[in-house]
Design a protein around this nucleic acid. Structure first.
Lengths: 334, 334
DNA sequence: GCCGGTCGTCGAAGCGCTTCGACACTCTCA
DNA sequence: TGAGAGTGTCGAAGCGCTTCGACGACCGGC
């Protein structure tokens, strides 16, 4: 089709118009007659023209690329991350943007680099910690950014996340409706709480508050991720709380271990103990038995983050904080 | 530090040299006196200069970005993917390149777009299928590419992967050494075999051949990923093969279900049945009991893919096929 | 003391695109 | 009928960088 890289000049020549006319056809920034437009578009597809990204970025000061900063760190819910990433890429494409992948271990320097070099127009950061080194940098950057998750001091930033407090509360509410009076939350590994990652803490707080509101007895524990540790945690839990009949699990890696442990301890789900998970749908569905769960709406969060960052790129103001309402899907475990 | 975007001209002025001199200091393509170099570098850091990526790409015809094409499709081993992605990003940075993330569901059009627009210099594709639509496109592209995985017809392409046939064989060998005479392979869900994904098939072939070589009895089955299906598969397996004492599991999502099923069937690991997994280390370590496993060397594969693609960018020729030797780590399950 | 050969630096010509101002038309309405 | 207001298109000026050819300055060898 092409003899190595077609330029806008060749398109213009082929269509018998000026270079600028082709550019305006593509951008729609000036009115072009229907006839001219058609000729130009025909030439574009006849020649197989694709605008050179570098030239476009240089002239327009827009690269049409956004950065996605992922944690890729121990203790993370990796499959969830992947879904976020996927959602962000898909959503970005709808706004005609591509996604540059940065790992957090490049640290703030990577962010500064891609921003200062105009490689990206905007940033989306995932797995933000309560006290995140990247946050001060974002404030001083000219490029708009959106965080997935909440730092301790979110003023002046744009943050999106599942409303984890509501998710914790929703699980409690569900168990209360089912008549359970003594329940427990098995959460993230303790290192995640120590690091001050928001979502774990917020789920716990929501859980604890809802337990009070419903007049239940409840306990919240961190939960490691090896089978043996999970087994011990679950065993001890029932030793300490013999009346326990409901369990909320907010730890994707531990979910199947918890179920195995219950089986081994001779506690049937849902007959002896009801289990609600906060995890991606596919994990809940694959479990035995399939789990009632609050799904983590990765796609929705990713899409929303991109929408917000695009709004900001357009210069519009957006809400500082967007919390997505948790949805509970009832399955065989409660 | 800066009053909005520093250009090379400002650096040149600050250092009292020509623009081209600054460029040569940065690229090292011409000799520069130590003294001049120092002054230029000082000015660069004093002004906080970062070269504009678009301008650089336009002038040099190199964007210093490589595309990473991920599957993000049902039935994939997502955490493994993430490690590949992470490894690719880290390795690319060492070559001073960034990584643009493409999802396979954009299809060939996305690949064509980023290549034709010179957004990327090269491509790394993951999870290549035996009959992959993207492969013909890669052959006609001017940009170099490397595949992680093997298509049916790899001639003229550069492919990297774990040697899954050897991995399957290695597991058999290990079980044979331990004195097991009748063993089974639980593999990927049948949809993965149907799709013709190479790694599943190659593991199975390696397994089957090694079973013959060692004079064992062996059977290879696909394995779905819900607990109930896994349970049935495992139960029926032992009904059909009462003498079975060794199991190879090549399905990350099913690993913990298999162990639960064995527990429920009253078969102790490793006493009654030995289990070897082909999966990432952390999954094997977290299982109960920790599993002897052939690890999937995601980091190494990713690093190697990047190294190869950089070699090709430099115009050097590289081997068509790179197979990484599997390593078996013995843990408590055999 | 002159010639050829580095060495270190400079100026200028692009790279392919967007965008601004200009200009030739065609309408509209006083 | 002519001023004013659009329309549709063009040419040219950059955007910030790399790279090519040129050119002094300095070197050693004869």
């Amino acid at each position: 089709m092409s003899g190595r890289t077609v330029t806008i000049a060749q398109v213009a020549k082929h269509a018998g118009v000026a270079v600028s006319t082709v550019s305006y056809v593509l951008s729609g920034k000036r009115t072009i007659s229907a006839d001219t437009r058609r000729r130009v578009l025909d030439s574009i597809s006849a020649l197989g023209y694709h605008p050179n990204a570098g030239a476009r970025a240089l002239a327009s000061k827009r690269s049409n690329v956004i950065a996605l900063v992922l944690p890729l760190r121990a203790g993370m819910h990796v499959p969830v991350l992947m879904r976020f990433a996927s959602a962000v890429v898909t959503a970005a494409r709808r706004f005609d943007h591509d996604v540059l992948l940065l790992t957090a271990d490049e640290g703030t320097e990577g962010i500064r680099r891609v921003a200062a070099s105009a490689l990206v127009d905007a940033l989306v950061l995932m797995d933000v910690e309560l006290d995140d080194r990247r946050v001060p940098l974002l404030r001083e950057l000219a490029e708009p950014s959106v965080l997935i998750g909440f730092p301790a001091e979110p003023a002046g930033l744009t943050c999106v996340d599942l409303d984890f407090a509501a998710a914790g509360a929703r699980c409690v509410e569900h168990l209360a409706e089912r008549g359970h009076e003594e329940i427990a939350l098995l959460g993230a590994p303790s290192v995640v709480y120590d690091r001050g990652t928001g979502f774990a803490t917020r789920t716990r707080d929501g859980f604890v508050e809802a337990v009070g509101d419903h007049g239940l007895k409840g306990v919240a524990l961190p939960c490691e991720e090896t089978f043996d540790e999970v087994y011990e945690t679950v065993r001890d839990l029932f030793l300490d709380h013999p009346g326990l009949s409901g369990l909320v699990v907010h730890n994707e890696a531990a979910v199947s271990h918890v179920l195995s442990a219950l089986r081994q301890l001779g506690r049937r789900v849902p007959h002896d103990v009801a289990v609600v998970a906060i995890c991606p749908d596919d994990v809940a569905e694959r479990a035995g038995p399939p789990l009632t769960s609050v799904l983590i709406p990765a796609e929705e969060v990713g899409r929303e983050a991109v929408r917000l960052v695009m709004e900001k790129l357009e210069g519009r103001t957006v809400p500082d904080s967007t919390l997505l309402t948790p949805l509970l899907a009832v399955r065989a475990s409660t």
